[in-house]
Amino acid sequence: MTLLTVRGLGKSFGGVKAVDGIDFDLKAGELLALIGPNGAGKSTTFNMVNGQLKADRGSIKMNGTELIGLAPRAIWRLGVGRCFQIAETFSSLTVIENVQMALLSHDNQLFSFFKPASSHARDKALELLSQVGMQEQADRPCSELAYSDVKRVELAIALANEPKLLLMDEPTAGMAPKERNDMMAMTKRLVIERGIAVLFTEHSMDVVFAYADRISVLARGRLIAHGTPDSIREDRNVQEVYFGGGSTFALNPSKAVEVSQ
Score class of each variant (00 low, 15 high):
residue 116 P to E: 13
residue 97 E to W: 00
residue 40 A to M: 09
residue 148 S to A: 15
residue 210 A to P: 04
residue 126 L to S: 09
residue 50 N to C: 14
residue 235 D to K: 14
residue 137 Q to H: 10
residue 143 S to W: 07
residue 256 A to L: 08
residue 10 G to V: 02
residue 135 Q to A: 15
residue 257 V to P: 03
residue 118 S to G: 10
residue 55 A to P: 05
residue 261 Q to V: 15
residue 164 K to S: 04
residue 22 I to G: 02
residue 179 E to K: 11
residue 165 L to H: 03
residue 106 H to C: 03
residue 233 R to Y: 09
residue 176 A to N: 11
residue 33 A to I: 02
residue 204 S to R: 09
residue 23 D to M: 06
residue 88 E to A: 12
residue 154 E to C: 11
residue 113 F to E: 01
residue 100 Q to L: 02
residue 83 C to H: 01
residue 159 L to K: 06
residue 17 K to L: 12
residue 234 E to C: 03
residue 15 G to I: 06
residue 65 T to M: 06
residue 185 A to M: 11
residue 179 E to N: 12
residue 160 A to W: 05
residue 102 A to F: 02
residue 103 L to N: 00
residue 170 E to T: 00
residue 31 L to S: 00
residue 251 L to M: 14
residue 212 A to F: 08
residue 105 S to L: 08
residue 67 L to A: 06
residue 222 R to S: 15
residue 65 T to E: 11
residue 216 S to H: 05
residue 134 M to V: 10
residue 250 A to T: 13
residue 55 A to K: 07
residue 115 K to E: 08
residue 122 R to G: 02
residue 254 S to M: 08
residue 138 A to E: 09
residue 47 N to Y: 08
residue 55 A to C: 11
residue 241 V to A: 12
residue 207 V to N: 09
residue 203 H to Q: 10
residue 120 H to L: 07
residue 24 F to T: 08
residue 233 R to C: 14
residue 259 V to F: 15
residue 202 E to N: 09
residue 167 L to M: 12
residue 115 K to S: 13
residue 48 M to N: 05
residue 122 R to T: 10
residue 78 L to D: 03
residue 251 L to V: 13
residue 129 L to Q: 13
residue 7 R to V: 05
